[in-house]
Structures are given as structure tokens and as C-alpha cells.
Design a protein around this nucleic acid. Structure first.
Length: 805
RNA sequence: GCAGGUGUGGCGAAAUUGGUAGACGCGCUAGACUUAGGAUCUAGUGUCCUAUGACAUGGGGGUUCAAGUCCCUCCACCUGCACCA
């Protein structure tokens, strides 16, 4: 009996000994950078999702290697961040001790067993000072180029993680990590100006070769909308309120304004009569979580400020209200309410008895309950009456702009990236505050700003990092005037660590520079990136931003990091995502031990399309193991392989099958359709076994095809056939369309689209002969009898359809 | 609510993009070998059925010689985003 585990150990050792997977980056002639998303090393170890992702990516890498590329397939650890830190807190072990232990476990006990061709010489660990020194360096470059700034604003606050979060890390109002409801907190934070790149981030989506689902998610997240910024003068005050709208055609129906409770002009607007009510409302809004505030089920509330604005279109006096359905974070934090044509405004107007003026007439009669939001003809709009609203938009825009009452504006949903974290486990922000010189960046030669060893690394929750309590860390000298100064005590968002790691892999041990320009030129952008779509608007957005910054600062000459990105699917179990609470988690270690890596690799790739994932079943993996054992038995039982050109000595059926299989498997793997590739390889094997094929060339072709899926088995079979190590140095099989000769075809004969018979015909038969032959079939005659043949449709090599009436 | 996706045997899934529905597997059934089988091998396996028949790709309708595939409509589930002005 074939011992899969022993065989795997044997070849893994051999690979390591011969450095088969170490690519010489300098001399490589045909580079292919095959990247997969690196993991954060949790103590639980790899889960089935990681395993699925890495195996799928490795198959592509092995395929490219066999096709003759020098494949660079590095791996590293995304070990900074709240996830790692929270785990350390939970188990009560300091991250400085825990994380290296986890990394060791991940690499030695798990990743190395997957049979993936990682090049460990280029391992990267984001918590290594030699790495985060460059993360800090990146911060400094952004700072020097006005792309990093500090500002006070209402930011997302997680009351459980005790830190602020970027918008991308708030999921449905909950913390991405711990699922706690997010509140708003008014504090000073560091931001990166990702919004400077909003348009470029959007435009490039038109040409990068990424999974469509990922591109759609990014487009929506960037959320470009075109409209007008209109100024509404405030009655009795020399101020203006600016609103953003995409529907200037409805301006004559704007019957009131609504400001966000945080709006800066609010103080000036509120009349003494309404002061108490307004203050109470503002305070209540501040206390609410985003969930309470942004839930659309909730009834809208608001209060009148006592002031009025002038509608610049018709000079009507309209009241100014505040409400928390208007967000300070989008547009100008103020809207013109057009209740007749916006459902939210209508609900609000009905509740507080505000006037509703219909300005666009549609087909249906407006019932004051459902806002009319479709196209129509303008009414109650003075000079613009009877225009279609599509036309009116242009005319009203031109008029308002001409009158200096508005200007065109493009708004994005995307906000600047808040990178401050009031936590311990991250790279310190390299900034010093001096009472004389103000905010001073740490000089590049003083990097890294080392993360100090702190006994109590728990977050304190006062809006400051635990580092704020370390006097030796905080107190420092100003790099400019050498006077007393204090360090910034926040650390950087973990997503910055991972936004540039693939730039570092080729230069992983270069302490003189962030990366070697020559190597970057040779190896980047990444040829193929595979990862989970949960990072569609997080990692994959930030990493594009950082790449664009590198380009603009002159470090690289490309602006998109990944030529090709593919999102893999998720592995589910019994119809649900694997999760501890559902109790359906499959531990990959057990299955690796029991069935071997090759079985697991083959099974995972076979259970569904790679980009969709699939449902894991324990029994399915047995089938893969059975297949591997059967193949081994067959190959080892052949004592004499015929060393002949198979194309000359085999029957045409086998020749056709081999060429067709090579062709289809090549196409399928390129498209990541591993499940069907495996099905076709198995079909070929079934034929080999059934017909007891012993041609050595056919055997070798089969081994190469299966090698990407079951590399250990392939090496063993390769040596069984007395070939030289390693099969991965011997190229991907070629197919030759010309060798596929079809002499006879089985054709289906239909009568009125229903199959009534089959016939075997020579491939060079004429259409007339084919028709005649079809009509000879007894069962066909039965169905054609006494009927008039209207026409006969012949599809080459497939079928004949006789249409009768 | 919006966007995207999915819906095919008992199960995971295929289907050359309009041309033989169910490839390749899992499971199951029967048989062989065996002291034994949760091992292995062989055969069978969409449903109904006397079938050379009929019916079958979430439901209904349409286009076509021909529809899982195209169009209309309805339903269910999954994933994102969600008061974005």
C-alpha cells in the first residue's frame, strides 16, 4: 500500500535540500511573480480557507513554472495589528513572545506541509523592526509630500477595541474585528489623503484585469457622484449655507434646508427661542452609535433652528432644520430638502408639516406619500416650466453658475484614510511634537522608532495608546532644535503594513533601502495575485493607493500593483461558513495527517470552481486519496514502459484523447477552473488504466498534468519511470492540434428536436450523404412516416435535425 | 431599498457559450474476493415506465428547427453596500 505521508515527507525534504523553490531573482530570465495574500499568524493556526487559497495559488504558480517561467512565490506574516494583539490579551501572553511562536508554528508545522513552493529565503514579517522601519519611512514620505495630515474630526470609535478605525473597517456600523457597535469620537488623528487619488483609483478599474466582483465593490466604495454645490444665503445673516445636490432640476421644490447636527454654522444660526431644544438634540445625536443613527428603519427626527435661508432659485424664505439623517461626513453636511422628489425628505416634511411643492410631473398623480423620483416635465419652476427634467438640469446648472450662486462639484464617498490607532501592537508613528518647532518628522536616519517593550500593553480607553504611559518613550529631544519634545504615541493601522509587503519580498534582507529598484523593475508589478474578496475595499484599495504614491514620488514606474487579481471562493461546510459558533470548523491538520497533502490539494480543487468555493465533505476527500493510490499502483505495476514516440505507435483514439486533454487542461488551469481540469485528467487516467496503456510518453504527460495538483505523487511517479529529478524542471506538455485526426464521428439524429437515433459517420461525409444516412435509421423513419419533411438542419460533427409537419 | 451572484440527480458539480442535459466524483444498490470490511475490484444508478415512450435544469410565459443557455415575469437563497443628498 502506498504511504502518502511518507512519500510527501520524502519529497518535501528533497525539495528543501535541492532548493528547488528558491528563485535567483537576479539571474532569472523569465520572471513570474505569483503572490498570495499573507496570513496573520493566529494561534489557532491555518484554517481551511487559508489552505484552499494557498493551494489554489500554488497550482497556478506550479503551472507557470512548468510553462517555463522563473516563478517567485514568497510568503510572509502580517503579524502586527489588533487581531494579533487581542489574541495576546486573551491568552495573557505578551505579543513579543506570542507572535514569533505563532509564526514558527505556521511556517514549520503547517505551511511547509502544504507542498506549496514557497521561497522562504524571502520571508517578510511586518513586526520585524527591519521591516517596519520602512513602514515608518513610507509615512515620512507621505508626510513630506502633504499626503499625511493630522486633523480633528468625528471618527469611528470602537468602544471594545478602544481605538479609532478607518471607514473601511466599519462593517454595517460594527467593528470589523470584534463586531461591537461603533460610536463617533471627536479627536485628532492622522490621515492619509487617499481622496487625492479617488479619480485615478476609479479610472484604472477600467483597465486592470481583476475579478469583476472586486472592481464593482471598489467602484461603489469610491462612490463618485456629479452635481452642484449651491449656496443658500441665510436670511438676516451674512453667511451662506452650501449644499451639494445631484438634482439641481428640483431646486424650485426645495422648501427647507437640513443640516447635520455637527454643522459648524449651527451656533450662529440657532435663535435663542430654539437653543435649548437644538442643544439637546445635538447632544443626543453625539451619544448614539452609528447603528442607532444610521438605521434606515428608524423614524427621522429633527428640530427647527429658528433661522431661515433664501432659495436662490425663487428667493423664497425657507426654514433651516437640523437632523441626524444628514451626515457631516458626506458632501457639505447640509442638504436642500425637496420633499416631493425625495422619499427621505418627504417623510421628514410630513412628520413636521413642512411645505411640499411638486416640480416634476410624472405619469402618476402625486399622492404626497410616495416621492416621485423618476423623469418628467418641470412645473412650478418659473422660466424652466415644461422642460424635461433631463434638459432642465443643464439649463438650471448654467443659470445658477452664471448667477454665481453655484458651482459644479464631484463628490466621492471615499474618505481619507485614518491611520492612527490608540493601541500597542503596531509601528509607532514617526512624529515628534516640540513646543518650539511644532510637529517634526523623525529624520529618516533615526528610523526605526522602536516599539518599546511594555509590560502592560492593554489599551487604556482614554483615547491614547498604552505608549503614552511610557515616559522613556514619550519624552525625547526635538530633532530640529534638540529641546525637550514629546513623541506621537499612536501606532499605525495594520493595513499600512500590508499595503506594501510585496514590494519588500524581493529585497527582504536589504537594510540599505526599502527596495532594490532593479529588482522592482524586473519583478513588479505582480503578475498574479490571489486572495479573498473580503479585502475588496480594504487591503486592495490601500495597496493601490500606496503604489500610486510610490509612482508619483518617483520610486517606481507603474501605478497599479497587480496586473491580475483573482478572488477565490469560500469553503463552506453543510451549507454554512465555517465558524466556531456553528461548530462546523474542519481542522486542516487532521485531514493532512489522515489523507495527506496531495489528497487534500486534489480534493479542495475538485469540489467546485476555485473562484466560487464549495462545500467541504469528509467523504469526498477519500475519493481523492483512493485515486492517488490507484494511480500509484498502476504506475508501479508496469514493469516495462514502452519507450516509443506515442504519436507514432498509439492508436488514434489515444492520440486524440491525449492532445485534447492537454489542450483543455491548459485552458482550464489558466482560467482557474481547476475542478474541470481535474475531471479531464481523471478521464485520461481512466482510459490509460482501462486500456492498460504502457507508452512511457503518455505516462509522462499524465504525470506532468497531475503534477500541479499532486506534486509529491508526481515526483514519485516521475522517478518510477526512471526520469531525472525534478519533474518540475521538465516543462508543460505541448499539444498539437494537427495530431487530432477524427475519422469517425457519432452523430445524433433528431426529429423535431427530439433524439430518435444515432449514427456513426466518416468525418469527410457530405451533407447530402449525411441526410440520407439519417433517414435510413429505422426509428427515424417511424417518426418521419406520413409526414412532410420541411427542412433538415445539419450541425457539423454534432447532429442532424429533421423538421417535419 | 440598491448592486452583484446563485438556483441542474440523494450530494459536490459538468455542459465546447443556442445543438445528445447530468462529464468527473461522492453516496447508494447488486455482485466478486474475504474470517471480516468503513479495504479493493466489477456492474448499475435523473424520474415514471412494458418502452425504440413520456417527463425532467426554482415557477409561469415567449423567441427558435432546437433553450440549462436568449427575452419577459414571478419566487427563493447567498454576498456586498446601505439615510451618500
Amino acid at each position: 500500500m502506498f504511504d502518502l505521508r511518507a512519500n510527501e515527507n520524502k519529497w518535501q525534504q528533497q525539495w528543501e535540500k535541492t532548493k528547488l523553490h528558491e528563485t535567483d531573482l537576479q539571474t532569472a530570465k523569465n520572471p513570474f511573480y505569483n503572490l498570495m495574500m499573507f496570513p496573520y499568524p493566529s494561534a489557532e493556526g491555518l484554517h481551511m480557507g487559508n489552505v484552499f487559497a494557498y493551494i489554489g495559488s500554488d497550482i497556478y504558480g506550479r503551472f507557470k513554472r512548468l510553462q517555463g517561467h522563473d516563478v517567485f512565490e514568497p510568503m510572509g506574516f502580517d503579524a502586527f495589528g489588533i487581531h494579533s494583539e487581542n489574541y495576546a490579551i486573551k491568552v495573557g501572553i505578551h505579543p513579543l513572545e506570542l507572535i514569533p511562536r505563532n509564526i514558527e508554528n505556521f511556517r514549520e508545522r503547517q505551511l511547509k506541509k502544504l507542498g506549496v513552493m514557497f521561497d522562504w529565503k524571502h520571508q517578510v514579517d511586518t513586526t520585524d523592526p527591519k521591516y517596519y522601519r520602512w513602514t515608518q519611512w513610507i509615512f515620512l514620505q507621505l508626510y513630506k509630500n502633504n499626503l499625511a495630515y493630522k486633523k480633528k474630526s468625528a471618527v469611528n470609535w470602537c468602544p471594545s477595541c478602544l481605538t479609532v478605525l478607518a471607514n473601511e473597517q466599519v462593517v454595517n456600523g460594527f467593528c470589523e474585528r470584534c463586531k461591537t457597535a461603533i460610536t463617533k469620537k471627536e479627536t485628532e488623528q492622522w490621515f492619509f489623503k487617499i481622496t487625492n487619488y479617488a479619480q485615478q483609483l476609479l479610472d484604472n478599474l477600467n483597465w486592470i484585469d481583476w475579478s469583476e466582483s472586486t472592481k464593482i465593490a471598489q467602484r461603489r466604495w469610491i462612490g463618485r457622484s456629479e452635481g452642484l454645490r449651491i449656496s443658500f444665503p441665510i436670511a438676516d445673516l451674512k453667511e451662506q449655507i452650501e449644499v451639494f445636490t445631484t438634482r439641481p432640476d428640483t431646486i424650485f421644490g426645495a422648501t427647507y434646508l437640513v443640516l447635520a447636527p455637527e454643522h459648524p454654522l449651527l451656533g450662529k444660526l440657532v435663535t435663542s427661542e430654539f437653543e435649548k431644544e437644538v442643544n439637546e438634540y445635538v447632544q443626543a445625536a453625539q451619544r448614539k452609535t452609528n447603528i442607532d443613527r444610521e438605521s434606515i428603519e428608524k423614524e427621522k427626527t429633527g428640530v427647527f433652528t429658528g433661522s431661515y435661508a433664501i432659495n436662490p432659485a425663487n428667493n423664497e424664505k425657507i426654514p433651516i432644520w437640523i437632523s441626524d439623517y444628514v451626515l457631516m461626513t458626506y458632501g457639505t453636511g447640509a442638504i436642500m430638502a425637496v420633499p416631493a422628489h425625495d422619499q427621505r425628505d418627504l417623510d421628514f416634511a410630513n412628520k413636521y408639516q413642512l411645505p411640499v411643492v411638486e416640480v416634476i410631473k410624472g405619469k402618476e398623480v402625486f399622492d404626497k406619500k410616495t416621492a416621485y423620483v423618476d423623469d418628467g416635465v418641470l412645473i412650478n419652476s418659473e422660466a424652466f416650466n415644461e422642460l424635461s427634467n433631463r434638459e432642465a438640469i443643464y439649463k438650471i446648472n448654467a443659470w445658477l453658475i452664471g448667477e454665481n450662486k453655484a458651482k459644479e462639484e464631484i463628490n466621492y464617498r471615499l474618505h481619507d484614510w485614518c491611520i492612527s490607532r490608540q493601541r500597542y501592537w503596531g509601528p509607532p508613528i514617526p512624529i515628534v511634537y516640540c513646543s518650539q518647532c511644532g510637529t517634526v518628522p523623525v529624520p529618516e536616519e533615526d528610523l526605526p522608532v522602536l516599539l518599546p517593550e511594555v509590560e502592560d500593553f492593554r489599551p487604556k480607553g482614554e483615547g491614547t495608546s498604552p505608549l503614552a504611559n511610557i515616559i522613556e518613550f514619550v519624552n525625547t529631544k526635538c530633532p530640529k532644535c534638540h529641546g525637550e519634545a514629546k513623541r506621537e504615541t499612536d501606532v499605525m493601522d495594520n493595513f499600512l503594513d500590508s499595503a506594501w509587503y510585496f514590494f519588500r519580498y524581493p529585497s527582504a534582507h536589504d537594510d540599505s533601502q526599502i527596495f532594490d529598484q532593479q529588482l522592482i523593475k524586473k519583478w513588479l508589478p505582480v503578475d498574479m495575485y490571489i486572495g479573498g474578496n473580503e479585502h475588496a475595499v480594504l487591503h486592495l484599495m490601500y495597496t493601490r493607493f500606496i503604489t500610486m504614491v510610490f509612482k508619483d514620488l518617483g520610486y517606481i514606474n507603474f501605478e497599479e500593483p497587480f496586473v491580475k487579481f483573482r478572488a477565490h471562493g469560500t469553503i463552506i461546510k453543510d451549507g454554512h461558513k465555517m465558524s466556531k459558533s456553528k461548530g462546523n470548523v474542519v481542522n486542516p491538520d487532521d485531514h493532512l495527517e489522515k489523507y495527506g497533502t496531495d489528497s487534500l490539494r486534489m480534493y479542495l480543487m475538485f469540489l467546485g470552481p476555485y473562484q466560487e468555493g464549495g462545500d467541504y465533505s469528509d467523504s469526498g476527500i477519500k475519493g481523492a486519496k483512493r485515486f492517488i493510490e490507484r494511480v500509484y499502483e498502476y504506475f508501479s505495476s508496469v514493469d516495462a514502459w514502452e519507450e516509443k514516440e506515442f504519436a507514432d505507435h498509439c492508436n488514434q483514439e489515444l492520440i486524440n484523447l491525449v492532445h485534447e486533454t492537454i489542450k483543455n487542461v491548459t485552458i482550464d488551469i489558466e482560467a482557474l477552473k481547476y475542478n474541470t481540469a481535474i475531471a479531464k485528467i481523471r478521464s485520461l487516467y481512466n482510459y490509460i488504466e482501462e486500456k492498460q496503456v504502457k507508452n512511457k510518453m503518455v505516462g509522462e504527460i499524465f504525470i506532468k498534468l497531475i503534477a500541479v495538483f499532486t506534486p509529491h505523487l508526481a515526483e514519485e511517479l516521475w522517478s518510477l519511470l526512471k526520469n531525472e529529478y525534478s519533474v518540475f524542471n521538465y516543462g508543460w506538455p505541448e499539444y498539437d492540434e494537427a495530431k487530432i485526426i477524427i475519422e469517425k464521428i457519432e452523430m445524433v439524429v433528431q426529429v423535431n428536436g427530439k433524439v430518435r437515433g444515432r449514427m456513426e459517420v466518416a468525418s469527410d461525409i457530405s451533407q447530402k450523404e449525411m441526410e440520407a444516412k439519417a433517414l435510413e435509421i429505422e426509428n427515424v423513419q417511424k417518426h418521419v412516416a406520413n409526414k412532410e419533411i420541411k427542412k433538415i438542419i445539419v450541425i457539423e460533427n454534432k447532429l442532424v435535425n429533421i423538421v417535419v409537419i
